[in-house]
Simulated scan of single mutants.
Amino acid sequence: MTTFNKIRWVASILLVFFIVLITNLIDKDNFNRLEYSVTTIYEDRIVASDLLFEISMWIQEKEVAVVSADSLFFEEENNKTNLDIDGLIQRYEQTMLTKKEQLIFNNLKEELSNLRELEKEYTHSETRETNHILKSLDEISQHLYDLSKVQLKEGRRQMFISNQAMDTIALFTQIEIVFLVLMAILIQIIIMYKPKGN
């Protein structure tokens, strides 16, 4: 075998090696994107939606207590309810927030703080004025609704990213199969080929 043929064989083998290596790295990147997307959908969207649902349940309970003038709720249960809401808020803060989501979430926290002040006034007041509390509860409900819409939009976006990654993986898998078939045919031709002079 001449030196030129040896160089040609080494170059061919290196080419195959680099093609396999590059497709492997692309596949690994796509798998990482897919894994991140699925994890994000669960941890930052489904869990966050559940937290928002639980907060809204507590807010509805407060609203019922205000509308029904349930002073016993504010004397005995409201502090525990506020602690439960605080715990849910802290857990929600640990999820990955988009810029828009962070803005709405900050507004929610401010309105919750405002509600606490109004509740103190309400429990210490003889007149039991409810308009301000009901308005605050409506604001909080609107923020929770807006946050739930962000969850839906971001979940949809993450699904799109994961679908793109799966499509890319499928495409490269097909390309790899075609490449391997072509390489097998080429190797067969090289093995079976007999020059005319031999």
Rank of each mutant, 00 (worst) to 15 (best):
D86W: 07
Y145P: 09
E43H: 05
V66M: 10
L147E: 00
L147N: 00
A48V: 13
D50I: 15
R45D: 03
F4R: 11
N163Q: 14
F105S: 03
F74D: 00
D167N: 14
L137D: 00
E77R: 13
I133K: 09
V20E: 02
V16F: 02
L171S: 12
K62F: 06
E63K: 09
M183G: 02
E121A: 12
K28N: 14
M166G: 11
L21E: 01
L25H: 06
S141T: 08
A165V: 01
E75R: 15
M159D: 04
E111T: 12
V178F: 06
M1K: 12
M183V: 03
I13V: 06
N114K: 11
S148K: 03
T127L: 11
M192I: 08
T2H: 09
Q142I: 11
R116H: 10
E61Q: 12
L118P: 15
E101T: 01
I13Q: 01
S56D: 01
A184W: 02
R91L: 09
A11R: 07
M166E: 08
K99P: 08
S71D: 08
I59N: 02
F17Y: 05
R156F: 10
V20N: 04
M96K: 07
K196V: 12
N114D: 08
V150M: 07
D86H: 14
A69R: 04
S141L: 06
I26H: 01
F172V: 12
S136I: 07
V178P: 02
A11W: 04
